[in-house]
Amino acid sequence: MVAKTKLDRTFMRTFVSFESDFSCEDSIEHPKGQELARYLYNGLRESGFQVREPQNREDWAWDILLLKDGYQIESILGYVNDSPIQWLVTTHLHFSIWKKLFAGSVKNHAENELQSYCCTIHRLLSNDRFRFIRWYNQEEFDQNVTDKWESYP
């Protein structure tokens, strides 16, 4: 069982919005962004992250999961099309209940891995296929403070 946890995200930016030339075509079988989800998946794998194949998230987005002993990193890729946010990737860190309660060193390791994971996503977005890359922390994004963004995670 994995419990959701709220990190101290004062400085950790794990939400990224951007525009891209990846296809936005609708499909009966899957949500928009399948090609983009595969691109992120392949890049994360090539960078050493043992992520699972992208999964259709109830026909509105794509999930990319990294499962570790005691925690998981979950990225959700969705097509928003609300300028300047065309695409949005939200990345979350979840701990198992036991690790959340009893393992401080696991939390530190997981947070470091989350930062490295987000930096890898940023590197994958740093080419001519992507524009207007904006990183947010979860709290500011949830409060719709979208004018407070940074160009890096």
Rank of each mutant, 00 (worst) to 15 (best):
T14I: 12
T14D: 14
F18E: 13
F18C: 15
F18W: 13
E19Y: 00
F22G: 04
C24I: 13
E25C: 05
D26R: 07
E29A: 12
P31M: 03
P31N: 10
E35V: 03
L36H: 03
A37I: 01
A37W: 00
R38E: 11
L40F: 11
G43T: 06
G43M: 05
R45P: 04
S47D: 14
S47A: 12
V51C: 08
V51E: 02
R52K: 07
P54E: 01
D59Y: 09
W60K: 12
W60Y: 13
A61R: 04
W62N: 00
L66G: 07
L67M: 11
K68H: 08
D69N: 06
E74G: 04
E74Q: 12
G78C: 08
V80S: 01
N81D: 13
D82R: 12
Q86G: 07
Q86I: 06
W87L: 00
L88N: 12
T90S: 15
T90K: 14
T91V: 11
S96L: 15
I97C: 11
G104E: 09
V106A: 14
V106D: 06
K107N: 03
K107D: 07
H109R: 14
E111M: 08
N112I: 09
E113T: 02
L114M: 03
L114S: 02
L114I: 07
Q115M: 07
Y117R: 00
C118I: 04
C119I: 10
T120V: 03
T120G: 00
I121F: 06
H122D: 07
R123T: 13
N127F: 00
